[in-house]
Design a protein around this nucleic acid. Structure first.
Lengths: 158, 158
DNA sequence: TATTGTTATACTCTATAACTATA
DNA sequence: TATAGTTATAGAGTATAACAATA
């Protein structure tokens, strides 16, 4: 319509594509783990507790960038199912150290299986080499922005 | 800890990295367009109306995968600012054809500028060639899954 | 009777801040 | 008094379904 402008409406940029594809992948993953009766926040919490056992709820909230009050119901939902455990610290009975139970560990193994199937579904149209290239580029971008590996920035709003 | 297992907890997969990075990029973009007094849904709506002028709200809702009722307040917020316009169809007075006003077009140009700055900020750590490679790979993955270009799949939940 | 857009209602999720128990 | 965790309250955003206007 307007050839005089340098880039007249040539569509959204790469960051938009990245965001759109990321949201799509997140949506599909949400569907998959629903079969395990897990939501994304529950899954993220389970994973981070497994990676950092014995942390207090405050420490966890700080790491996740979420208010501590939000964690209460989230932990409850997992503890009620015997996947997570609160243990009081005898030295300071205010603190609740968090641990994944054996049942939680077993569920995490199934989550990992789901994650691999999910990866294959998302990147099935790429060759193994291309997947490696893509992952390396994404990892570099994530690193450049200081993203904590394994922590979803949208935890605070998912 | 357990070297007998094939891939014992080697961290989240590439799809998780993609989702995390996409959410990060989306968050940063949200901050940028806040300076233009726009939210992501408003921006998406403005863009899709510009790309498909004269559509009815029902048609738009179908394209976006959102209930028509949700569009009402969204359109109101843009129409009140003179960025979007409802025009009744004289042949069928139930339909409201949607158009971007000149003021809306001007704002969209500023959104495009913001988008380019955003792209540069997100991918600043990559060379021009690497950015091209990344974009091409992302575009292929998006295409393989039938994502509508320019439409954020999370529109229905943003 | 069917369809477009609108409004009303209820539900989910979240952050803020008050509260309790421990220190 | 200060801190860890919890509960209470209120706000934003959403989908569902009822509604009014038009066909």
């Amino acid at each position: 319509m307007d050839a005089t402008r340098s880039r007249p409406e040539d569509g959204p940029g790469s960051a938009f594509l990245l965001a759109a594809l990321g949201a799509y992948a997140a949506g599909r993953f949400t569907e998959r783990i629903a079969a395990l009766d897990l939501t994304p926040p529950q899954t993220g919490l389970l994973r981070i507790v497994a990676a950092n056992p014995g942390q207090s709820q405050q420490a966890l909230a700080g790491r996740l960038g979420t208010p501590p009050s939000r964690l209460v119901a989230l932990i409850d939902s997992l503890a009620d199912r015997g996947l997570l455990e609160r243990r009081r610290n005898p030295d300071d009975r205010r603190l609740h150290a968090l641990y994944v139970t054996p049942a939680g560990e077993r569920l995490l193994h199934r989550v990992a299986q789901v994650g691999r199937a999910h990866d294959d579904a998302i990147f099935g149209s790429l060759t193994t080499d291309e997947r490696g290239t893509l992952r390396a580029l994404l990892a570099r971008v994530a690193d450049a922005h200081g993203l904590t590996p394994g922590v979803h920035p949208g935890f605070r709003r998912l």
